[in-house]
């Protein structure tokens, strides 16, 4: 099967800082990938390059058959980036719900404004997704009235309502109180079970072990290990991976 995401020779500099070093990666449809690593290892930057929230300095990104080379410029290039963004849904650490819109408005904003979907159709789709994340009962509430876990579940529904091919999660539970993490992880498991391709930057080792098909370990801008979770957690090869896993074991997460 052809990969749904293919990253080739990706480089990213912040000023003089080389944060991603010649990264290549293929993700198969329906695969769930967890990206782990210490902060500053480049895992969030890698994720943000996939939908061009960060502009890659070199290499290319291919999503669902659509390739964008970093060296290209111009209108056609911008159009392709736009199409890649339509194929990817993003969930942020800080939720980033629109505070001036109700839960339902948040969820249908993308389909209506960006895709030009009929409002009634978007509402039906949005309500279905809100229901699947267990947030339909708050459909007319404003984000300020929601708990962190509820906000993140709405954010997942918002991304799903764009009907993406791939979902990107950027530390989706890192801003949450410990007792709220479970409800978000459960929703993510459900999304994975429904067959969505997912790339998840996370510190949740339990989630990675249980849900991921592959776990990638990043350090200093490189992927230092790429294995299925059973192999990775029982027999980590790189000493940096060993240290990382050991730290989470003793840290209780």
């Amino acid at each position: 099967m052809a990969p749904i995401v293919r990253i080739s020779n990706l480089d990213k500099y912040f000023g003089r800082l080389h944060v991603l070093k010649n990264i290549s990666l293929e993700v198969q449809p329906r695969e769930v990938i967890c990206l782990i690593g210490r902060s500053g290892s480049g895992k969030s930057t890698l994720l943000r390059c996939i939908n061009f929230l960060e502009e890659p300095s070199g290499g290319s990104i291919e999503v669902d058959g659509l390739t964008v080379h970093s060296h290209e410029r111009g209108n056609e290039h911008r159009q392709r980036i736009h199409e890649v963004r339509l194929k990817t849904g993003m969930v942020f650490q800080e939720f980033n719900l629109f505070p001036h819109m109700s839960v339902l408005q948040n969820v249908i904003e993308g389909p209506v404004t960006v895709k030009g979907m009929e409002r009634s159709e978007a509402i039906a789709l949005g309500e279905k997704n809100l229901d699947s994340v267990g947030m339909l009962f708050k459909r007319d509430e404003y984000p300020l009235r929601l708990s962190g876990g509820q906000k993140q579940r709405v954010a997942i529904a918002r991304a799903l309502t764009m009907q993406p091919r791939v979902m990107l999660f950027d530390e989706p539970t890192s801003a949450l109180d410990p007792e709220l993490i479970g409800e978000v992880l459960n929703v993510m498991k459900k999304v994975a079970k429904d067959g969505m391709t997912m790339i998840v930057v996370t510190h949740e080792m339990g989630f990675a072990r249980e849900v991921a098909d592959r776990v990638l370990v990043m350090a200093e801008g490189e992927i230092i290990e790429d294995a299925n979770p059973t192999a990775l957690f029982s027999a980590p090869k790189d000493p940096r991976t060993q240290a990382l896993i050991e730290r989470y074991r003793t840290g209780g997460r």
Binding site: N51, H82, M90, F98, E109, G110, T113
Partner: peptide
């Protein structure tokens, strides 16, 4: 208006003009 708002709109595929009109200006 926080940077995250712009990023969320961009990730949804909004153009800079749509982001300004629908997300940044109202706030």
């Amino acid at each position: 208006v926080g940077k995250g708002q712009r990023e969320a709109a961009t990730a949804l595929g909004m153009t800079p003009l749509q982001t300004m009109r629908r997300v940044i200006l109202p706030q």
